[in-house]
Design a protein around this nucleic acid. Sequence first.
DNA 1: ATGACCACAACATGTGGA
Length: 278
Amino acid sequence: MRIATWNVNSVRSRVARIVDWAVREDVDVLAMQEIKCTPEQFPREAFERAGYEVAAHGLNQWNGVALASRIGLGEVETSFPGMPGFLKGHEGLDLPLEARAIGATVDGVRVWSLYVPNGRGLDDPHYRYKLDWLEALREATASWLSAEPELPLALTGDFNIAPTDADMGDPSFVPGASTHISPPEREAFARLLQAGVADVVRPLVPEGYTFWDYKQLRFPRNEGMRIDFVLGSPAFADRVSGASIHRDERKGDGPSDHVPVLVELLDDEGDDDRPMIF
DNA sequence: ATGACCACAACATGTGGA
């Protein structure tokens, strides 16, 4: 099974590019973030023509997440238990939920497409929201794995955190800076890992970014960040046989500012998925 | 070249992104 995650920065503005890449890379399951549309507006036909079914969660032009699969989507769930909401100018409990999480079961693997809040600035209410959202995700993850320790679970998406200094060469790469690398954000990410998931890409791809800002020649200068991840439970990580960051998808006409991250998984018998050739 | 922001709603400019 080949599972990918990609912050597409509007699925409608680059649907052909997204589907072409998925087909070319033989992707079975694609988790998307920032689809920037409602399920009714989602360009399903292009995915269906390529053999993918789509589960999308979007409320308006902001955020939005989706899963596309050509091997089925079961037990689709929008938002995770305890996920906090946000409304600008308000704080507290029971604020409206944003479209930042969708999960489904694919061939026994529980896959989540996650779009962690940006934070906007260290003094912004959105920053507190980001930290609370990550803590709620940690609690949900601990609960899932406590109930089912052998669950193959993948938390994929745009985490909006550069966990190590090597994941962002210079703080000026983020306009306004200071978010994405602050100690509380990095600690929240580390606590999420302590709930029982691990970055399955870094051991196989130790170098490289997944995002470059559109401005100021960030891509040709290679001034980017690594903020998109696939975090797997032990039962998932044990089956990972390959990983890649598709830097070329930042080139050419009309790219997203993020590139896809792909993980190859052995099937649950320990074999790869390639058909036998006699 | 991998090149100097982009997407959305709306139709001017504001919001959000990271």
